[in-house]
Structures are given as structure tokens and as C-alpha cells.
Simulated assay, not measured.
Amino acid sequence: MLSLLRKYGMDSDKMFGAGMASILFSVVSWAASRGLQGESLARADRWGIFVGEWAPTFFVLGVALRLEEQARPDMPEQSARRHESDRTASGVGQ
């Protein structure tokens, strides 16, 4: 599964970013629900908890991808092209 994620351009940094975004989105959802009452409040609270539970999954996938990146540094084709264009843009490849 990890190699499939890497094949489609996912890396550990993106997963860590998704985890942080999930935490931020959960806090924003909670803050936005502070003025609600009744069933709307309960629904907003459940939504905030649901989104907050994504963070550990993203962080665990981030750690697993980081270990995969270190163990197998051979990058998939898509990532290799991205890194090559980064090198060329910075003038390293010239």
C-alpha cells in the first residue's frame, strides 16, 4: 500500500500536513459550533470529533511513508520527475 501511495505522488510530508490540517479543521469546526443549540450542536460536535480522528491516521501513514522513503529511496517515476524539475529550476542540473 505504501508503494502505491508513493507511486501516486504521496510522501511523508504531505501526510504530516494532512494530519495538521485535520487538527486545524477540527478546531475550526468546534469554534464554529459554539453558538449552535440542540441537534445542530450535537451534529457539529460529532463532525468535529470525526474530523479530529483523521489526524492519527495521517500521522501514522506519514511515519510509515518516512520509513519507506528511508528504506527504499528509489523514487517512483512521478516523484523522480518532480525532483528533477526542482533541481533544474534551482540551477543545480545546469
Rank of each mutant, 00 (worst) to 15 (best):
K14Y: 01
K14E: 00
K14V: 02
K14I: 02
M15R: 05
M15V: 00
F16S: 04
F16T: 01
A18R: 11
M20I: 06
A21L: 06
A21R: 08
A21P: 01
I23S: 11
L24D: 04
L24Q: 09
F25L: 11
V28M: 08
S29N: 11
W30D: 05
W30T: 05
A31F: 10
A31Y: 06
S33N: 02
G35W: 05
L36I: 00
Q37C: 04
Q37Y: 07
G38I: 04
G38A: 07
E39T: 03
E39N: 07
S40H: 10
S40C: 06
A42F: 05
A42H: 06
R43Y: 07
R43E: 09
A44E: 07
D45H: 15
D45T: 12
R46G: 09
R46F: 07
R46V: 02
R46E: 09
R46C: 06
W47H: 08
V51P: 01
V51I: 07
V51A: 09
V51H: 13
V51W: 10
E53S: 13
W54K: 14
A55H: 08
P56S: 00
T57P: 03
V60A: 15
V60Y: 10
G62L: 01
G62C: 02
V63N: 10
A64T: 02
L65A: 03
L65I: 02
L67Q: 11
E68H: 06
E69C: 03
Q70A: 15
Q70G: 13
Q70T: 05
A71R: 15
A71Q: 15
R72E: 15
D74K: 11
M75D: 14
M75E: 15
M75G: 09
M75C: 11
P76H: 14
E77D: 15
Q78W: 11
Q78A: 15
Q78T: 10
Q78S: 10
A80E: 14
R81G: 07
R81W: 10
H83R: 13
H83Q: 10
E84I: 09
